[in-house]
């Protein structure tokens, strides 16, 4: 595991479960993983909300000063889902190692200009979608699934890029009955599982020789 290799280099992984049902749903996965790094449980999808994330897994690199140096991107740290996504984790892990070694000098650290471009969210619909999703999750948790569904649908409509809003809502329902679709149907509609995850946009490695696979 990448954490074992890098943890002595002033590096931490903060892994956050986006699960409306909290420990009930995320707990078994955490127990099975025997984590040595920090895993947190986020019933309200707070991290996705404040970082504008639309899917899992999404990774963000944060430097020693608490500054974002690479924003939201698909972040596979192992090949558990490679058959589904078609994405090999190696290029991402390679980039991560480069940053841990070189810090600001790493080619994978983004310029402030590009960061600002990527981080800007000007769409009021995206911000409102998060509120509709939050309301839906609250209603679901207080035993009102049928009242929650219109709010989940509204969140999905306002922010169609968010897979989180679709997948979490489907998981709390009979998706076919309540949404007339399933996750796999939606993946097929988007062009299939191999385009469902957009690979991280990594520049070529400037120092390929000094890395062990």
């Amino acid at each position: 595991m990448i954490y074992q290799q890098l943890k002595d280099k002033n590096f931490e992984i903060v892994s956050v479960a986006q699960d409306t049902n909290g420990v009930k749903d995320a707990g078994p996965w955490i127990t099975a993983a025997h984590p040595t790094y920090t895993i947190l449980i986020d019933e309200q999808h707070l991290v996705s909300k404040i970082y504008n994330m639309v899917n899992v897994p999404t990774g963000v690199w944060i430097d020693e000063q608490g500054k974002i140096v690479r924003p939201n991107e698909v972040a596979f740290v192992n090949n558990q889902f490679k058959d589904f996504s078609g994405l090999d984790s190696a290029p991402y892990l390679n980039a991560l190692r480069d940053w841990i070694e070189r810090g600001d000098k790493s080619t994978y650290v983004m310029s402030e200009e590009r960061l600002r471009e990527k981080l800007a969210v000007n769409d009021p619909n995206v911000i409102l979608a998060a509120a509709e999703f939050g309301l839906g999750a609250h209603l679901y948790k207080s035993g009102h699934l049928s009242e929650a569904i219109p709010h989940f649908k509204e969140a999905q409509r306002l922010n169609p890029k968010s897979w989180n809003y679709k997948r979490q809502a489907y998981a709390l329902s009979d998706a076919k009955r309540d949404y007339g679709t399933t996750f796999m149907d939606e993946v097929q509609k988007s062009g299939g599982s191999k385009v469902y995850y957009q690979p991280p946009d990594l520049p070529p490695d400037a120092h390929p020789k000094d890395k062990k696979p």
Binding site: S15, S48, G59, W61, G66, V77
Partner: peptide, 20 residues
């Protein structure tokens, strides 16, 4: 409870996942 700011001074990979 843990805060992101508890790890200030280290490089952090913040990563989300889900059971669903």
């Amino acid at each position: 409870p843990h805060s992101l700011s508890d790890f200030r001074g280290k490089k952090i990979l913040l990563i989300t996942w889900a059971s669903w």
